[in-house]
Design a protein around this nucleic acid. Structure first.
Lengths: 155, 155, 155, 155
DNA sequence: TTTT
DNA sequence: TTTT
């Protein structure tokens, strides 16, 4: 179990179209996206509005989800991403150790969501792309004879 | 410090317009919103598409933020909410104990975000509503002479 | 995809031993735990230390994980829980509609972690309980010839 | 508001004692900690147990919280950290651009918690260190005449 | 009921 | 470097 947690949640816009990486043998497609988050504040001294953008390297190792990213996302798309941090080591041309930190999208179901923009305007549901391999959520309220909460706001 | 964590993150749509509650003395405005989240899956047995909606009572005790909710949110608005769970006890008309669980929006800055729909279409930034009381984010990259990451994707 | 997110993170202590519910046909064991979170603050007016505890109904529908909860958790155990909110409707003895909100533990791997106390003191790893059905994490750094970050501190 | 979210949650152990950085003028103390998270799995091919550790640079820019980290944390301490990602640019000795990604602890209250080990065994509460500047949580259940949930289990 |  |  490892007594540890490594969790990242991002909501932001793609800075460019997704890059579909070369397929590694047996592993399927890999998608790389650049996600921007920004915060703004009023400068204490000048009173001016300031803004700061962070760019995040987000990587998807799942073949099917990468295809969906390819189809549904483009420069400007607003996405929700849930993943974990990984820092990988590489060697630059001068032979020096370099480290790059990425957000790895964790699991298939629900860890990336298209929230707006891009190609997702009214063309049907994302889930339509998925084969029926997705299991039913496991909980009481999904059982037959269960809640009719779906039909009305219960409060 | 209490060695505990109580954290909720929701992205969903408002099921109705916000309700601005009566002002409690000295506490400012309170906003109540009904947020829907849903998940869908293919039924194992029938193969049919099924969907399940959850409704969340979300409460904001901050006066200023409640005003913003009032202005910026309406039925259908997609919001991001970050808060914590509270269950409060009350007594019904039969004199019985009842419990209601709500998501309390945690702090002012950034714990509710309008992601789409509603009144937020191109009318300027949410932050324009805020007085300059918001402090500058505290971190290295915000210092003078700092990063020019804002101008370009660095990867 | 549903354009929505419903996510709860708790770190808190069990208020009593886990309750293993009756097995529903075909669904395996269900575990119910009561998790307390608390926050404390200094009262603005009196200056006294005040504390507030929240109790959370946490439910696990996974058979194997429920067994682990049964073995590893007891009254007082500190746990990390990651799940989502569900409110289910039921009818009380007076025939009135009632609603109960629970935190449903999301998926098997890593969504409950024993952080301390209870029976988890030095009795071996939680993972030893698991059969080898757990898949390898999918990411670059796990590939053969990959990173040797594990062996040394990169900063 | 910026329509974006940048959020990191870590639970892990300190790999070394905290490093208290030089004070920047007017900004107070800065604490740097190295937090390890790890995951383990059974190798698909060999069946062997494998483990992978990630190291996270975590930075605290808050003076008071940095003092607490200094006192309460040491090599081996298990901590909960909530923050956001920042990547800062710097120039190495060869004059090349380099980027380092860090987790910045977000705000004062509750964004770092000592969960175990280290110096936190029975020496009194963390909160005792804090002056009474912490405001009361704002919510219904904290009001006078409010809930007595604290005293009894509601389920 | 828990815990600090 | 940590921890299980």
């Amino acid at each position: 179990m490892s007594q540890s947690v490594n969790r990242v949640i991002l909501v932001g816009n793609l800075g460019r179209d997704p890059e579909l990486a070369a397929r590694r043998e047996g592993d399927g497609k890999i998608a790389n996206i650049a996600v921007a988050t920004s915060e703004s504040w009023n400068d204490r001294n000048t009173g001016e509005r300031r803004e700061k953008t962070q760019w995040h390297r987000v990587v998807c190792f799942n073949d099917h989800l990468s295809s969906v990213i390819e189809r549904r996302c483009q420069k400007g798309t607003l996405v929700y991403v849930e993943g974990h941090l990984e820092t990988r080591k590489w060697t630059d041309q001068q032979g020096q150790d370099r480290y790059t930190t990425e957000v790895i999208i964790d699991r298939f179901d629900g860890n990336i969501k298209v929230l707006g923009n891009g190609r997702n305007t009214g063309e049907g549901r994302f889930d339509d792309d998925r084969p029926s391999r997705s299991a039913a959520p496991r909980s009481a309220a999904n059982t037959p004879g269960g809640s009719d909460l779906d039909d009305e706001i219960p409060f």
